[in-house]
Design a protein around this nucleic acid. Structure first.
Lengths: 225, 225
DNA sequence: GCATGTAATAATGCATGCATTAATGCCGTG
DNA sequence: CACGGCATTAATGCATGCATTATTACATGC
């Protein structure tokens, strides 16, 4: 039995998971429409659980349910990216500040530091996928250390929405050298309990990431992803 | 025909609206469980649209769908309130800063300023409901001026979750005199284009509101609402 | 008397079919 | 030839019934 839990998952939950995979992998491309019955056939179940899954994913901002036109996979515009990165900036910097205020010891921050060494390893090997994976884990862990479950949930949703765009730009962007220095400084601020500094550094980190990404998209005329 | 739109609403949408009303009015009390079939009978429709509405509201954090136990109306703990007010603080202060950066003129801020005069009128008449209503409109309008649709959506959800708690404490709290001064200062910072100041003032405003509310709940032993 | 296993029960989860309704194409008219 | 109304079509929205499964109560054995 896997650690994910061997509990018998309902078809509705399976549909959510499968649809997410199909969206992230690009098999259901951004902007495309799909009838409930098509998706039901594709997933080997009836329309009911597919419909429920569609409603769930609509609440997560990944698609839109439109009467008689099927579900539309929502594309991400540059404006969307700006919005999302602003939300991430505000919430993650607060999480960093809160993490700094918790008095975490070296042991509590082990996981966070491991993501940094993984990023460095990824950078050294010029393995962008490995770096990106570790970067995701850094941000997830940082938010977790902030101790606000709602921030965790919101951030996860926002990250989902930019997932496609990130994978597209991953190979276009320069190697993120500054990024790693930022991460290291955030950890140090948390260690020393300097909430204001943790917040400040992380906000600048996110602002820089936003600018880099937006410019990249504009330069490459990627107005919709 | 009302401005809300006379379009034939689906039962599923009606169910969402009615359930929200029932939750906010306390007819479905926090912590209570309700079978899908009960709710369906109550709303005069079949289980299907009720079930869909329940999934939607679960995504909004208002209730929880539990197999074989019906839907549970989620109570709000003090920890929840802290989380929510921290999210509101982070996102609304960013909205205030962004609003200050938009170069809004007197005309753009008319709606915002009207909410302040309404609050003052409510205060003068010691009409707490009128004050609270204007206060809600102030925050909604402030976030709208920030120009980030995701922030608007997230803030609206958070506000929904604390709605019951707010109405309980509305008559316990002292008259919010400082609150109005804060609002006025935020508007002035936005007018003068001072983003940092708008952010700062509003963050302090939300922090003070949070402390006041949390203390009120603790003093009155209201650990769950 | 308590614990364990089993059977009855009841609520969800899902499939199916029909009614509703918006979109599309066609026909008739100006 | 273009425009407008009507019929056709097709996809959703919803109700219904059944299968699945967790829970509870009861009986039996220790």
């Amino acid at each position: 039995m896997a650690t994910t839990g061997g509990k018998t998952k309902s078809n509705s939950v399976i549909a959510v998971e499968r649809l997410r995979e199909l969206i992230f992998s690009g098999e259901l491309p951004a902007g495309s429409d799909h009838l409930e019955s098509e998706l039901a056939t594709r997933l080997g179940m009836s329309r009911t659980p597919v419909r429920e899954a569609a409603l769930t994913l609509e609440g997560q901002g990944l698609l839109q349910v439109r009467a008689r036109k099927g579900v539309r996979i929502l594309p991400i515009s540059i404006k969307d990216m700006e919005e999302i990165y602003d939300v991430l900036s505000a919430l993650e910097s607060m999480a960093a500040a809160n993490a700094a205020g918790q008095g975490y010891g070296a042991n509590d921050l082990k996981e966070l530091e491991k993501t940094i060494t993984d990023m460095e390893a990824g950078l050294a090997a010029e393995n962008r996928e490995a770096w990106a994976d570790a970067d995701d884990r850094f941000h997830t862990e940082l938010v977790r250390l902030g101790g606000n479950s709602r921030v965790m949930a919101i951030v996860a949703r926002m990250v989902d929405q930019v997932r496609r765009a990130k994978s597209v730009t991953l190979h276009m962007r320069p190697l993120p050298l500054q990024s790693n220095r930022d991460h290291q400084q955030v950890v140090e601020a948390i260690k020393s309990g300097d909430a204001a500094r943790a917040r400040q550094i992380h906000a600048e980190h996110r602002a820089a990431a936003k600018d880099m990404l937006i410019n990249l998209l504009r330069q490459n005329r990627l107005h919709m992803l």
